[in-house]
Design a protein around this nucleic acid. Structure first.
Length: 486
RNA sequence: GUCGCGUUCGUCUAGUGGUUAGGACUCAGGACUUUCAUUCCUGCAACAGGGGUUCGACUCCCCUACGCGAUACCA
């Protein structure tokens, strides 16, 4: 067995069909802890519930981790493949008298439980089978009576130091002799985790707070099996805005959904890290590398964190502006491709144009999808114009005059550069004794269809003379038709 | 019910006996800019309640309330 001196952590999801955001955070913290301490980050699929598990579901998890950039360092382990080891561990305990066969039936136990509950008492297994005589056991076995295996819990108190929650102590009397092997011979979760974690040489178990109260049971199992007890760190839960555990009611809860919404891994990782962890400094925007460098268990909070979608978008936007356009290229180009703005071959043919487009827009968007919603004019003439904008900029009597005058000037421009368009526009404004802003707003609306855009003159130079002229003409006829209607 | 854990601005949080209780998102106002969704500045806004301990408690102790989790032949 590996010694515990080498740091090995694991993320152990059950394959439920997608990578939950809470799971992703657990994975991230495991990953960061491993990286920060020169350890290994492993993945174990808890597929004990075989009916609910499939290859495809495992793939979702792998894809999700991969997308986030936190793939495991070794091939994943399937819990179901360790079944034999779980069973022999149970047998070992049985042989050593640390566990015993329980012949009570499910129905009997159910009745006892109900009785205790209706009497307002705490139900715990009575221990009826704990001291069955060897003869009785033999008889039952001979009679082929089904049995479960239960761990014999000694008197005492379990104390452990959680890296997040600090000292925890639970009296063993709170725990009853829990089942480790079902009557069909399959191992129960508690046994499986302990055996698997030991088998994988896990040194630190980092998982959700919902496992905190399982920990004493598991420690008892480590002790009984004479396995080294790992360190534990429990992460506070991620909650929905009603303060309860995050569930499907809250919209996006899986990594895949965030991806579809237009989040990038950098943003998701950053947001997730800040849910329950805080750095020593005031820094809020982190790359994965920076997180790795600064991650520290002491920064983990004990309080459940409510998920703030607005902040998450803001963080994502920060990454979008910081990342060089080249890094965004593939994702944004794909979004444009999906939307039909461009064709496959254009990704290469018009590479520079696309890249510059991304560069112009990236400071203003928060989600990748917004490159689509606010970027249509890179590719097509505006199909319609912002209503407010039309009212504001195109409904005065001289609207078309202004645009026509500009059109005249620009048609004759030899160089349609940023400097030239700006200079000529301002000249015209002077000539007409109006504010340059009037012309600028009017042109922006004509060229993009929106009232907001990146720096107008940069936009003009980027689109080129031909397109700009065409769009101004289009706008002119729109204004004409529109005023005719009224 | 019992056990465990938690409780600082609306949200994420800093704070480890003496602070004008700090930062971030959101929101509001302002500045810059041709506009803005960018950037910058300003503002709003919090120690759950009650008892102790102490010269002095957000910080330590106890109680209450509230929340979450666990109490399965689920994981």
């Amino acid at each position: 067995m590996e010694s515990l001196s080498s740091i090995r952590v694991r993320f152990a999801p059950s394959p439920t069909g997608y990578l939950h955001i809470g799971g992703a955070r657990t994975a991230l913290f495991n990953f960061l802890f491993a990286r920060a301490n020169g350890g290994k980050f492993l993945l174990r699929i808890e597929d004990t519930d075989l009916e609910r598990s499939s290859e495809a579901m495992i793939q979702y998890i792998l894809d999700g981790l991969n997308w986030l950039g936190i793939s495991p360092d070794e091939p994943y382990v399937l819990q179901s493949e360790n079944r034999g080891k779980h069973i022999s561990a149970a047998n070992k305990l049985l042989n050593e008298g640390k566990a015993y066969r329980c012949f009570c039936t499910k129905d009997e136990l159910e009745i006892q439980r109900e009785k205790a509950q209706s009497a307002g008492k705490v139900y715990r297994y009575s221990g009826a089978c704990r001291s069955l005589s060897d003869e009785a056991i033999k008889e039952n076995l001979a009679a082929k009576m089904p049995y479960t295996v239960r761990l014999k819990i000694p008197d005492g108190v379990i104390r452990f130091k959680d890296m997040v929650f600090k000292k925890i102590s639970v009296n063993n009397s709170e725990l009853d002799d829990f089942i480790i092997l079902r009557s069909d011979g399959t191992p129960v979760y508690q046994l499986a985790v302990v055996v698997d974690d030991a088998e994988m040489g896990i040194s630190h178990v980092i998982r959700g707070e919902d496992h905190l109260s399982n920990t004493p049971k598991q420690i008892l199992l480590y002790l009984a099996l004479e396995l080294p007890v790992p360190q534990f760190a429990h992460l506070p839960l991620i909650l929905g805005n009603d303060g309860k555990r995050l569930s499907k009611r809250f919209g996006a809860t899986s990594v895949g959904e965030f991806q579809e919404l237009g989040f990038i891994p950098e943003g998701v990782n950053n947001s997730l890290a800040l849910l329950g962890w805080s750095p020593k400094s005031n820094q809020t925007i982190f790359t994965l590398e920076e997180l790795t460098a600064q991650f520290d268990m002491s920064g983990i909070s004990k309080k459940g964190a409510i998920f703030d979608f607005d902040k998450m978008k803001w963080i994502n936007g920060q990454h979008l502006t910081c990342l060089p356009a080249e890094n965004l290229f593939a994702r944004v180009a794909n979004a444009w491709l999906d939307k039909g703005f461009i064709e496959e071959k254009e990704i290469e043919n018009r590479h520079d144009y696309l890249l510059r487009s991304i560069d112009l827009l990236k400071e203003r968007v928060r989600l990748v999808n917004e490159f689509v919603t606010f970027g249509s004019w890179f590719f097509t003439d505006p199909a319609d114009y912002d209503e407010e904008g039309v009212k504001k900029h195109w409904e005065s009597s001289d609207s078309s005059l202004l645009l026509s005058r500009l059109l005249e000037k620009w048609q004759n421009l030899a160089s349609f550069s940023e400097e030239m368009t700006e200079r000529t526009l301002r000249q015209l404004a002077d000539e007409l004794e109006i504010k340059a802003a009037r012309l600028i707003h009017s042109v922006r609306l004509a060229v993009t269809g929106f009232t907001v855009s990146p720096s107008l003159f940069a936009v003009l130079a980027h689109l080129g003379k031909e397109t700009v002229i065409r769009r101004i003409r289009l706008a002119l006829s729109f204004i004409k038709n529109n005023s005719g209607k009224q």
